[in-house]
Design a protein around this nucleic acid. Structure first.
Lengths: 190, 190
DNA sequence: CAATGTGAATACGTTCACAGCC
DNA sequence: GGCTGTGAACGTATTCACATTG
């Protein structure tokens, strides 16, 4: 068993928050004791869709594509890359990490055939929208976009974009504001 | 000039929000007219530390490291990679995109010599902490961590981690909750 | 007793609305 | 007239506090 206090401590949040969140998802504990770890794991995995394997298709097998696949193999949790697509002829037909590299033109049929549910875009930004359109018309229900381009999709397709620069921006902001704060304190100690 | 209404429209938020945020940073507009675009750009760039070049050092020149460098070259905004480090002997001494690859052991001296301010970790998770410690003792003031490992650093060093899986988790959560919501609606139309 | 479940209290972020100014 | 700057109003998220229960 585990208490909300311990969970909160691990996450660095308030115990009441943990309890509120868990009840929101219908997870109840035992008064005076805590929550069943096993139930907690089972339910949270279900909530995040980890109770089944999602079928992913990679688009673009450059450096980034490779890195994503490696990462996926390292910590595969609830998803599998079932196919990869690329535009470069010399890459077609090769296999990376046991996954077949198919031509972009074959996307429509291959997505249906292999049952790809989520498309992962790792292309140059100039092709991102084009590739997204192809994925949508091929019938994926979600897109994970790693290209530095704001892609546009119909409402029924869920899109999440990974911005490589966002965290760097945050870091620079925090570094600059920390410095100017320091300066201000020195000159005007409130 | 540009109005808060137009800025809000572009960002998909409320005009009052834009004005509140801008005044927070001391940016004031002209009543009845709007904000000076030039001033806005100048000030916001300053806020995000884009008014100068940050000197970055890459640690790990595998697929991910390459992808990060490529990305940086593509949209270089306020930062430059001045050096790369790697543990593999066959990579040392080579140059990737005009940047020298130095051995990990040389980090302490090279970071000081080249004036590296932010270290970018693109190593396997098992080496992430070790490399972070090296960067800290070499004197970087910030770390951008791409490895799937929660690194621990002293308080004076700012750390931001890029989680490759977070957005995929969100996507799966949204997809599952959308489906169960749909199911519920069909069986119990409220 | 110890820790949950939850209404009440509080804090916070967002939006409204309008006086003030160009 | 039009748009800013901002106090007040509002809504939502977080935290408190305590009755409740195994």
């Amino acid at each position: 068993m585990i208490s909300s206090a311990r969970l909160a401590d691990i996450c660095g949040i308030n115990p009441a928050q943990v309890r509120k969140d868990l009840t929101y998802f219908g997870i109840v504990g035992v008064r005076g004791v805590g929550y069943f770890v096993k139930e907690l794991l089972f339910e949270t995995r279900k909530i995040f869709g980890l109770d089944r394997e999602w079928r992913l298709g990679l688009v673009g097998v450059g450096n980034l594509g490779w890195a994503i696949l490696r990462h996926a193999q390292f910590m595969s949790h609830g998803y599998t890359f079932v196919v990869a697509f690329d535009g470069k002829p010399n890459r077609i037909g090769t296999r990376i990490g046991g996954i077949e590299v198919a031509p972009l033109e074959a996307m429509n049929s291959v997505v249906k055939e292999k049952g790809v549910e989520i498309g992962v875009i790792a292309m140059k930004p100039e092709f991102a929208q084009e590739v997204a359109d192809m994925l949508v018309s091929a019938g994926v229900c979600g897109i994970l976009n790693y290209a530095p381009f704001q892609i546009q999709c119909p409402a029924h397709v869920f899109v999440e974009s990974v911005d490589f620069n966002l965290k760097l921006d945050i870091l620079r902001y925090r570094l600059t504001s920390a410095r100017s704060r320091g300066r201000r304190i020195r000159s005007r100690p409130l």
